[in-house]
């Protein structure tokens, strides 16, 4: 039975978002695991070394090549995502506002293992914070990555981060934030499998455009 779609009929995750999400997921995995291969040749945290089975690229040259190939997918996809998110108002609608008491409430609920995702269309305050954090970390990766790739052409960007070695630390820290996010994100998705299905099939229909204020209950 095919339901007639009105032009205003929206899915939780429009097709464009779903495509971008999975391109980003693949690109992130490539960037992270090839980055670990590059990291190993001159560690940032002495003693921390990534074993071969976690690295993409058989040795440094191929990790570098993976990284500099993945960057286009990560960077261009990310730019389109941010442009789309700002232009359609999706980012504002989903991620704002964040109220401190909502954050506290969600943390308390989570500590009691009440991970309720009855309504997938509404992000709780901690989710919003995490999504904003990972977007900022991704922007950090793009900027520090650009500075590391072209430290002379973008020497002012390097200075902004406090010098070449300090850019490396920021780039590494951004990776840590993203990996931390991915672990929580995947864990929660596995615990509430309908979220995965929603990111594949589109999820529930949204009847009307909610006001940005209506995002939190």
């Amino acid at each position: 039975m095919k339901k007639e779609r009105s032009p205003k009929d929206r899915r939780l995750h429009p097709l464009a978002i779903r495509v971008m999400h999975w391109i980003n997921a693949a690109a992130m995995m490539v960037m992270i695991t090839s980055g670990w291969g590059i990291y190993n040749d001159d560690v940032i945290i002495n003693g921390l070394h990534f074993p071969g089975y976690l690295r993409l690229g058989e040795w440094a040259a191929w990790s570098v090549n993976w990284h500099f190939a993945g960057m286009w997918f990560f960077g261009i996809n990310g730019l389109i995502y941010l442009t789309y998110g700002v232009a359609t108002g999706r980012l504002r609608e989903r991620l704002l506002p964040i109220r401190p008491r909502d954050v506290v409430k969600t943390v308390v609920e989570t500590l009691h293992f009440k991970i309720a995702h009855e309504d997938l269309t509404v992000y709780n305050a901690v989710q919003k914070l995490l999504y904003i954090l990972v977007i900022l970390a991704s922007i950090n990766q793009a900027l520090t990555g650009l500075a590391l790739w072209k430290p002379v052409q973008f020497s002012s960007l390097v200075s902004l981060f406090g010098g070449f070695q300090s850019v490396r630390v920021f780039h590494f820290a951004g990776m840590v934030v993203i990996v931390g996010f991915v672990i929580v994100h995947v864990l929660l998705a596995v615990l509430v499998p309908k979220t995965i299905w929603a990111m594949l099939a589109g999820g529930p229909r949204l009847e009307k455009r909610r006001s940005p204020q209506g995002a939190s209950k």
Binding site: A26, V30, Y53, E58, W62
Partner: peptide, 19 residues
Amino acid sequence: RAGLTLGSLVMLTGCDVKR
């Protein structure tokens, strides 16, 4: 090809990725 392999190889990063 890279477009294809980027996606498919991601699934294999935990394994020994050959070239």
